[in-house]
Nucleic acid binder design. Structure first.
Length: 942
RNA sequence: GCGCCUGUGGCGGAAUUGGUAGACGCGCUAGACUUAGGAUCUAGUAUCUUCCGAUGUGCAGGUUCGAGUCCUGUUAGGCGCACCA
């Protein structure tokens, strides 16, 4: 009987649907296991062979866990909102909903062919109202919360209001945009408008006037992680800084918790490190400097408190509000000109060339440690958004300050013994402190750091600063608040209306606020949101419903927010929704959340390290504070699958002709390399006839073949993309070899985490293995009792496969299958039990053939619920062991010993052996070392 | 500049975590069966070699009886952060 994968796969895929084999429900009698893939956004191009890589890996793990008796949740859905889906819709001139749904159908069709064990009853789509209901709901909860620094958690805003009523801002320690100060009386005296804007300073979801990344090409603002090298990640349009009123999420409040949480999750070091960098914690001190001849003062942030005595000038960021205050009349013209210059420079320019520029403000600051007057400069190398936007410059020990001091001829005072600062600054935080205070001037205060190490000096200065009221110890984070609104159509609407200009939440029971139809959904370059084109889009407060905006002037009818939410809104808590996807009254029920807890294994690309994986952790921590999520961290273990790159092929056209020359002969001509569809190339040999038929302009193409009469193509590894004609479609592989072969081959290609180019050539080996296995199971001789060799081969496999699946080493466990089959094929006959064990262990990798075998062996249940074979060490034991005996680590020879030999016996035997005696001549035994591999090394001395 | 990761045959990649380097697959070579081979089966395949053996995991050292694995330095590639004070 032939291995007819087409019929087998069709049969089982139908059966799985009919019998709902993969439907899961909470079941307290079984331990749970939650496997999750990052859900895809359905692009118009469909799936290529790279997409299923992670899905296959997690599918194998999910099936394995189920065989081990776990109740496994393995859901799938679509991230259907956001820029990508909308860009595609705009390019094809169709409504985003229509194209999105088409793409989803296409994805589903392709996914179904590969045989995944997804529970499709739990599918979610971020663009479905019953889903984004809970995205809007979470936003409202964030709006109605503030973050308490003391208890490090989100609290209801009412608590804060009560505090203001009682004490104003006295004794407040909360996450905030600005450090406001007011009394209870002042608070009470505020009108509604003032109270609203004051509270915005504290809400976790708040509206703020902030510098945003404005991208005119996309017609929207972007989050920091969506901007790469000053251009938009999607589309590559230039991005400029612009001040706009935007919704923001106070992600920064959770900085410390986001950092601490990394210690308790099993993620790769590189992703954790990337997140640590992104959060950017730095410990330092804020120190206050008075401005000379003025009542004003300002605060700087430094991590090098030990260098207070080496300050020779101060620098303000050009955007700082202080600039105006410190600029003197004489310097005004120069400062204005400089500010103008800085404004004319784009973010990108500032990032690429670090020009040393700046201007003197005319004022001086008094150094509280030396009493000296340090000139205040304004320079673009100081950033407004970090710390306080002002620094003290210590050119001797900071490279940037050093470059600035050299350029503008400012003094440089070294503070570390032996540091040579004539050519460059000494930035290392080590050495003995000197010149603090300098011995040639009269000390200004009674405080000295001389003789300390840098570390001691930092600590000592911090204590002094706090005790003398000069400032405070401060931890700064690089992590910024996330900008949460987009001037786009295809996203979640905000459940917000503007009552007399005050942002007000639409009542919870009226959610979701559904996305209205519009005539024109294209964004505008000026930032007018497309939702403004909706005819039905105003809130009737009395009747609690959405009405036509023509009524906006009437009493009680208010405009609804026109912005929409960004892509990460819908993807931040979808893993919770999968637990209870059809719940109409809650994001997730308490029972479901408590049963499934959090994701045990999350599989997805590492490109989301600073986006989705930060936002999701933030979002989950917030819901954890509310008691919705049961675990502080959403994803316990994370595996980052590598990218599958494309392997492009090239043909070489001789200039100005329609003649193509084979790769190995092209150097004799002047040629243009052209991408050629990899589907008409096999083993780098071009199918010449298919090439002629590929495009009309090649119909009469001529070829210069190589000596073997073949046309060889060149090749290169590039991103898999339509434009390079290197896309390999999984459907075609499934059609030719079957889904089981595709699954096996994708895993056999190498470690899941590694990026690698796709190469269909090796697939034959995997297909051959399945054919051989098929033959073995269907035609091999049978016996009742298993031989020693059979048990050994089988149990070697059980041990290897169990360990390898646990550690995601799928490629090596497939190799073990091949070895095992080879061993078994050498035997005359094998037992039914061995075949059953093979079927069960193969099922996670190749579920269709696994089911087929299981049925052939007389079972009428699904192989998914079979018990995983039990490993028995006994069968691996040998009668005798071969050991190596080594002298001086050089000469070695093998000796046979009984299997249960002890190291003493082995040593004695080795010493008595005539051959070894020859080796040992002139030596005495120094020591015997027993090593894990049962090799004994005898160390000899002359 | 700072941080993280990776360098093993013609290729993808193994190596029980310090113990016979190159599992398994591709490719290649030879043979068998075939009208045919892009089917199947068998054998071989790190390098050098005077066929005894010697060398061999980017490079140079070190620790060890023993190093692909640990340490130091170096080089190449990839990733992240970056005038972050």
């Amino acid at each position: 009987m032939e291995y007819n994968f087409r019929d087998i796969e069709k049969k089982w895929q139908q059966k799985w649907v009919e019998e709902k084999t993969y439907k899961v429900a909470e079941d307290n009698s079984k331990p749970k296991f939650y496997v999750l893939n990052m859900f895809p956004y359905p692009s118009g191009a469909g799936l290529h062979v790279g997409h299923p890589l992670g899905y296959i890996a997690s599918d194998i793990y999910a099936r394995y866990k189920r065989l081990q008796g776990f109740n496994v949740l393995n859901p799938m859905g679509y991230d259907a909102y956001g820029l990508p889906a909308e860009q595609y819709a705009i390019q094809t001139g169709q409504h985003p909903e229509k194209t999105t749904f088409q793409n989803i159908d296409r994805y589903r069709e392709q996914l179904d062919k590969i045989g995944f064990c997804f529970d499709w009853d739990r599918e979610v789509r971020t663009c479905a109202p019953e889903y984004y209901h809970w995205t809007q709901w979470a936003f409202q909860k964030m709006f109605n919360s503030f973050f308490c620094n003391k208890c490090q958690s989100a609290q209801p805003i009412e608590k804060l209001i009560a505090h203001f009523d009682q004490n104003g801002t006295e004794g407040l320690d909360v996450a905030q945009t600005e450090n406001l100060t007011f009394t209870a009386e002042e608070w009470k005296a505020m009108d509604e408008q003032q109270k609203s804007s004051t509270l915005m300073n504290y809400r976790i979801a708040f509206m703020g006037e902030t510098m945003v990344n404005w991208c005119a090409g996309l017609g929207t603002v972007l989050a920091n992680d969506e901007v790469v090298d000053g251009v938009s990640e999607r589309g590559g349009f230039p991005v400029e800084q612009k001040k706009m009123r935007q919704w923001c999420l106070r992600v920064s409040a959770y900085s410390q918790r986001l950092l601490d949480g990394l210690d308790n999750i099993q993620w790769s070091d590189s992703i954790k490190e990337t997140q640590r960098n992104w959060i950017g914690r730095s410990e330092g001190a804020e120190v206050e400097f008075n401005i000379a001849d003025s009542d004003e003062s300002f605060t700087i942030f430094t991590t090098r408190a030990d260098t207070m005595f080496g300050v020779t000038f101060m620098v303000l960021a050009p955007e700082s509000e202080l600039v105006e205050k410190v600029t003197t009349a004489e310097q005004k013209a120069a400062v204005d000109e400089y500010i103008k210059y800085v404004k004319g420079r784009t973010e990108r320019e500032r990032m690429i060339d670090h020009k040393v520029t700046g201007v003197f403000s005319g004022s001086y600051a008094i150094n509280p440690f030396t009493g000296e007057k340090n000139p205040i400069w304004i320079a673009e190398y100081v950033l407004a958004g970090y710390g306080t936007g002002a620094i003290m410059a210590v050119p001797a020990h900071d490279a940037r300050d050093y470059a600035f001091a050299k350029h503008f001829n400012l003094p440089i005072i070294p503070l570390i013994k032996g540091a040579d600062v004539s050519e460059e600054s000494y930035d290392a935080k080590e050495g003995e402190v000197i010149n603090s205070p300098r011995t040639d001037v009269k000390p200004y205060i009674d405080f000295s750091l001389n003789g300390c190490t840098v570390k001691e000096a930092i600590a000592k200065t911090k204590v002094y600063v706090e005790e003398n009221g000069l400032g405070r110890v401060k931890v700064n984070y690089r992590l910024r608040d996330a900008i949460f609104s987009r001037q786009r159509y295809w996203g979640e609407p905000f459940p917000v209306y503007y009552k007399n200009g005050i942002p007000t939440m639409i009542p919870e029971e009226c959610l979701p606020v559904e996305l209205p139809e519009v005539d024109k959904f294209l964004p505008t370059e000026t930032g007018e949101p497309p939702l403004g084109n909706a005819t039905v889009w105003a809130w009737d407060e009395q009747n609690k419903k959405i009405v036509e905006d023509t009524k906006i002037d009437q009493k009680g009818i208010f405009p609804i927010e026109l912005y929409t939410m960004p892509g990460f809104a819908g993807s931040s808590a979808y893993y919770l929704r999968y637990m209870d996807p059809h719940n109409k009254t809650a994001l997730v029920s308490k029972e479901a959340a408590e049963y499934w807890q959090n994701v045990d294994l999350y599989v997805g690309g590492s490109e989301h390290a600073t986006g989705h994986l930060i936002y999701s952790r933030f979002w989950n921590k917030f819901l954890f504070d509310l008691g919705i999520s049961c675990k502080e961290e959403p994803f316990q273990k994370l595996v980052n699958q590598g990218m599958i790159q494309g392997r492009s092929n090239f043909v070489y056209r001789i200039k100005d002709t329609n003649t193509f020359v084979s790769f190995d002969k092209k150097d004799a001509y002047e040629v243009t390399p052209l991408h050629v569809d990899v589907n008409i190339v096999s083993g780098d040999i071009l199918d010449v006839e298919a090439f002629k038929a590929w495009r009309p302009e090649y119909n009469d193409a001529e070829f210069i073949l190589n000596d073997e009469g073949k046309y060889m193509c060149g090749w290169a590894v590039e991103k898999m993309s339509k434009s390079m004609f290197n896309v390999v479609n999984p459907d075609m592989i499934v059609e030719k070899f079957g889904a089981d072969t595709l699954r096996l081959y994708e895993m056999f290609l190498g470690p899941v985490e590694q990026s690698k180019p796709w190469d269909t050539n090796g697939i034959d080996g995997c297909h051959r293995f399945l054919k051989k296995l098929w033959k073995f199971v269907t035609e091999g001789e049978r016996t009742e009792t298993a031989s020693k060799e059979e048990l050994k081969a089988l149990h070697t496999l059980i041990k290897k496969v169990s360990a390898d699946i646990e550690s995601f080493s799928y490629n090596t466990s497939i190799a073990a299958f091949m070895v095992c089959l080879n061993e078994l094929s050498k035997l005359k006959a094998t037992t039914k039990e061995t075949r059953e064990a093979l079927a069960i262990m193969l099922a996670p990798f190749c579920p269709h053939i696994g089911e087929e075998f299981w049925q052939m062996l007389g079972h009428d249940t699904t192989v998914c619920d079979a018990p995983w074979p039990v490993f028995n060490e006994e069968f691996l034991k040998e009668d005798s062991v071969k050991m190596m005996v080594a002298f001086n680590g050089k000469a070695r020879f093998p000796m046979e010993f009984p299997a249960d030999v002890t190291s003493e016996e082995a040593e004695a035997a080795a010493l008595n052996d005539p051959q070894s005696a020859k080796w040992m001549e002139g030596f005495t035994v120094a020591k015997v070392i027993v090593v894990p591999k049962k090799m004994i090394n005898i160390v000899l001395k002359k």
